[in-house]
Design a protein around this nucleic acid. Structure first.
Lengths: 228, 228
DNA sequence: GCCGAACCGTACCGTACGGTACGCATTCGT
DNA sequence: ACGAATGCGTACCGTACGGTACGGTTCGGC
């Protein structure tokens, strides 16, 4: 049975079966409009028309299911590459604004918010590294790895391209990205996590993205003095 | 209700006795190093050496207890006023940096993080306005009102003072505050909520605060030239 | 057509928790 | 000094959930 487990583990990493994906989709739906406590094993089984026994067979335990939900959803991020050659100042601004809009769209998504709430709710302040089972990393760590890191890579690429084109000036790309992130998101993410209706914020996303891009260029564009 | 109760009267501003405050303190301690699921009625009662019956008498039900924890903790915010007259550019920068440092300190506090996790975990995506009991607003809304709004007022005051002194230029104070907030916090808050060790981030708080203040002045300072 | 594997539906178990009830100690007002 | 109120400790109840076991059913391989 170890062989079976190994095969399954590999399958989970490379992508689960259609049936399992459907189950995860159901679980995500439950999570989105019921919160974490709505994701009960019985509830998921009922919603997905599968048996609890299968759930435990596929995901080990409830934590495994939750982790699988995060990994599964994270597998949907698209990585848009940017043609690095023809970069003008205005083109860079547009790329920045587009990135900002995408970022805001991702963060304001129902599923994203629900998963972030889940991972945050799971987090414990004090040294939570209790590896009771093979749950591996914390859900929060998992979410950060698969979510933020991924989209951050795209931003870093864009910033590097801008620097190579002589349009941006910064020493630490991560720091610059942090600034960009802050200009774009401000506290919108936290407020949405706390229950603020995303629809109310979405209306100003476009303007916010434009302003963030412009501000970022003011701070890091060539001709501006970055450090004091 | 004579002279002896003078001290208690101050504590009872929020309608809570000393005993109840002690209970809330115990509950907060439990929350901080055990997460939400550690805050059980029996656990709080045991930790605070009181009976469950008293808990229910004082707070109604578990939700009432959680709300009381948030309100109680929020009652500790101090509002530092800024002398609006003698404002130079450098003085403003220092005030901004001080505010940034305070904000980061607050957000990285154990209790603050635990309460934010609690409120976020309690939040449900879909129209969460189901008031089961007299709990009134959502915990998230409560936290936002009492926490962010409060410290935001202080920042807004500072910004208005800067504008009145002719050192800052902006149309919308809230928008400017949002930018300031983003520059200061970036994604540090979210990462800490997800479990990232605050101690690791605290080391760079000072530098981050300085940079945020400088960047803000670059964006909103008159003439837009930060350094001199 | 048969066999085994996978799987569904359901019943079941142990536990943990929210909430209530009761008995007894302590305190406070009169 | 005495009765009432407050509150502690504990036992108790109902429920809900995580996890397991079992019988019946479908499906693919031989």
């Amino acid at each position: 049975m170890q062989i079976v487990d190994e095969n399954r583990a590999k399958a989970e990493r490379a992508g689960l079966s259609e049936r399992q994906n459907a189950v995860l989709e159901s679980a995500l739906k439950l999570l989105v409009d019921g919160g974490e406590k709505a994701v009960t094993t019985a509830g998921v089984a009922r919603a997905a028309n599968c048996s609890k026994e299968s759930l435990y067979k596929w995901f080990g335990d409830r934590d495994g299911l939750l982790s699988a939900m995060i990994s599964y959803q994270a597998g949907k991020v698209r990585t848009v590459e940017v043609g690095a050659e023809t970069l003008t100042t205005d083109g860079l601004r547009k790329h920045l604004a587009a990135f900002a809009l995408d970022l805001l769209d991702v963060l304001s998504g129902d599923v994203s918010l629900a998963l972030n709430r889940l991972a945050i709710g799971q987090t414990v302040g004090r040294t939570a590294m209790r590896g009771a089972r093979g749950s591996g990393p914390t859900l929060g760590r998992l979410l950060e790895e698969r979510g933020r890191r991924q989209i951050g890579r795209r931003a870093t690429m864009l910033l590097e391209a801008g620097r190579k084109a002589g349009l941006l000036a910064f020493d630490d790309a991560d720091e610059a990205y942090g600034t960009l992130y802050g200009l774009i998101v401000t506290d919108a993410h936290l407020r949405m996590l706390l229950g603020f209706d995303p629809a109310a914020l979405k209306k100003e996303f476009a303007g916010r993205a434009e302003r963030a891009a412009a501000s970022f260029l003011t701070l890091y564009g060539v001709g501006a003095m970055a450090d004091a």
